[in-house]
Amino acid sequence: MKPKVAFFDFAGCEGDQLQVANLEENLLDLLGQVEVVSFREVMKEHSDNYDIAFVEGSCTRLQDEDRLKQIRKNAKLVVAIGSCAAIGGINSLKNYKDLDQVKKTVYGEHAALFDSYSARPIDAIIPVDAYVYGCPIDREDFLQVVKSLLLGKKPETPTYPVCVECKKNENVCAFERGQFCVGPVTRAGCNSCCVNEGTICWGCRGLIDNPNENSQKEVLIKNGLTVDDAIGKFRLYFGWQEAKR
């Protein structure tokens, strides 16, 4: 019997689910292996009977915790997809600002009507079995994780940084192009897609397990960034991880 899968979203842009919906030529093959029972972005039907839950978005309100716990209860495997769910993501930028001010900026005069607390990845609330990193996730990487889970294998998530893939792809280093990149401390698995296109690594897959953060910040500053800008580079995606370290 095909495993039943469901997709859920929390605070996020739903861009990761869009990547899944856009799997193109691989979509039919994937549907040959799993039965999708809930996926708000592409279908009306919903069922609470599922084996694998893919969760997008970070947890930014107390009341979201119950929903996450319910998903954990229903599912055999919970997979965090995308930066927000996996590492807190860009939402965690607000954790470095005054919460009332943040609410006022977003909701204006209605700020008092909305709940909010500091953004966090879903594993701050529930145990997570696998992660698909990225903002948005890389479709090939998503399929690799799914195939691993279907084969009963722990996904081989890289512990090395993006530089490894960048070098294999023979890119000219972003620093050599006068740009600033956090690839040396960011978890690989994206095939260095942004640098391949001539831009930089923003760090969307989060810090590697043991990053040399001081050295990386020194590199940024040595190449011309201000201290504040270097800190900003790290906060964009690493905000939650850095606060935890």
Binding site: Y160, N212, V219
Partner: peptide, 22 residues
């Protein structure tokens, strides 16, 4: 002390030959 463990030095090396199999 400043090593990023990024592997760049060995990945661009013309005599490095370590590999992984998967």
């Amino acid at each position: 002390e400043k090593c990023l463990a990024c592997g760049s030095c060995v990945l661009v090396c013309p005599t490095c030959y370590c590999f992984d199999v998967k």
